[in-house]
Design a protein around this nucleic acid. Structure first.
Lengths: 159, 159
DNA sequence: TACATATATTACCCATAGGTAACTTATTTG
DNA sequence: CAAATAAGTTACCTATGGGTAATATATGTA
């Protein structure tokens, strides 16, 4: 085992800094902005705060950061709208969310949101690709789904 | 969609605070302490720093926290040893690590360490149980493994 | 149109998690 | 045994990410 490869969470995050423009927290805000803007075209600070269960000052600060990264357009006291770049990033985040969620549903989780939201920030692009492929595999091999669920039923309490 | 369920990463972490004694960072330190103590019975601050690629002051502080939680025994300038409770926690963390890693290997990832280390802190106990069961399912159904890898080979570049 | 209310921003705070520099203690070496 | 070296601790720093309180701005209402 190559000891040099181990880091703390923060160490790994720093390692990936070059490929990641956004922190997990910013991703959460971006994903929610995308979800709402797809429908309404814009979102306000108080609505974003409500949706993510944070206070308005927290949103205000993050919105400034996302603006600095050219993912949204925003003026003080105004509404938040996505730039083209922001739409791409948001679409990616939602796609990733759905891939993780689909997998957790396959696994047999009743409640998937919290785990999805926690896991999604922590998978590499490589892992995401494989997860998407795996989801497709399960869709095109429903007998595997059946076998796994039968296995689950037989082994639920053997842990 | 029930909007009240969305939080930021920090929000979810606060939600799980009652069931989680350790932060992701502390888990990293505990897992490494466990890995080394299984072999040597003890570890020193400088070795732990080296293994996790952090500086000694960072280790010194975390070690005090883990001692406060009765997971290790430690006196200043001395060696770190696991308590019985610490051994249980360490064993759990390593088991969890291996379950996540086995799954990522199944998925087809060449390099699994970074993703494993990032994902492991973010899955619930429920998800871990299902992952362990899934790993067992794959072990007892090698034909599923084969089918999936054939699927991978055919679809690798269709993403 | 003035006042009330809602929304948003700013200043300051705390917690976590890393760093460096300076210092203390333990160990090694000549 | 004294000096050198290594290991470890402490003080102070930065960054991120949330909060509250106070303040500013926008909107609604009578």
């Amino acid at each position: 085992m190559d000891n040099k490869d181990f880091y703390t969470v923060r160490g790994y995050q720093i390692h990936k800094k070059n490929e990641k423009m956004l922190t997990p927290s910013m991703e959460d805000y971006m994903e929610m902005i995308y979800r709402v803007c797809r429908k309404n075209g814009y979102i306000r600070i108080n609505v974003l705060a409500e949706r993510l269960n944070v206070q308005a000052p927290s949103v205000s600060r993050v919105v400034e950061k996302l603006k600095a990264r050219k993912l949204i357009s925003y003026e003080k006291y105004g509404v938040v709208q996505l730039t083209d770049k922001g739409k791409q990033v948001g679409a990616f985040l939602l796609k990733r969310h759905k891939a993780v969620e689909a997998f957790l549903k396959f696994l047999g989780l009743q409640e998937t949101l919290m785990d999805t939201e926690m896991i999604e920030h922590n998978i590499s692009v490589e892992t995401l690709k494989k997860l998407i492929l795996f989801n497709r595999f399960i869709q095109s091999h429903p007998e595997v789904l059946t076998q796994y669920h039968e296995f689950l039923n037989k082994n639920q309490d053997r842990l």
